[in-house]
Design a protein around this nucleic acid. Sequence first.
DNA 1: GCCAACGTTGGC
DNA 2: GCCAACGTTGGC
Length: 143
Amino acid sequence: MRPAKRYWLFKSEPNKWSWDMQKARGPKGTFWDGVRNHVAKKNLMTMKLGDQGFFYHSNEGKEIVGVVEVIREAYPDPTAEAGDPWVVVDIKAVRPLLRPVTLAQVRADGRLDNMALIKAVRLSVQPVTKAEWQIISELGGLR
DNA sequence: GCCAACGTTGGC
DNA sequence: GCCAACGTTGGC
């Protein structure tokens, strides 16, 4: 049996790598580089083909703007020094949220208090539970 | 192996 | 620009 699909959240500063840039890559997607934290790395290693994630704009915007999908599982980060342990996955843009979900909304919701977005502020690649995924999808106008 | 100092992230 | 949270480094 195929393992249940998992959900994630990818943080990016939009002035470095924005949703629009991700979308412009089309179905080919791109590798998600720059992760230099062991917890985030562990999350990357756990990802399977077809897992979905939210695309979050940190710093400017502070909102979840889109949905991405994992199209290649973890492999060595091409931007890391040889011998470094860091990995990337490939992701592609799937669709934008009809209405971006802001950090303020997530905080105010009450059902999302345990999200890593709030609990682990600095973690750049985070797990999202199925329940959280559904709530945010609704807030974002996706169902 | 502990912990103080320091650097980085990211919200405000 | 400030600072809280947290990770990493290095002295002991």
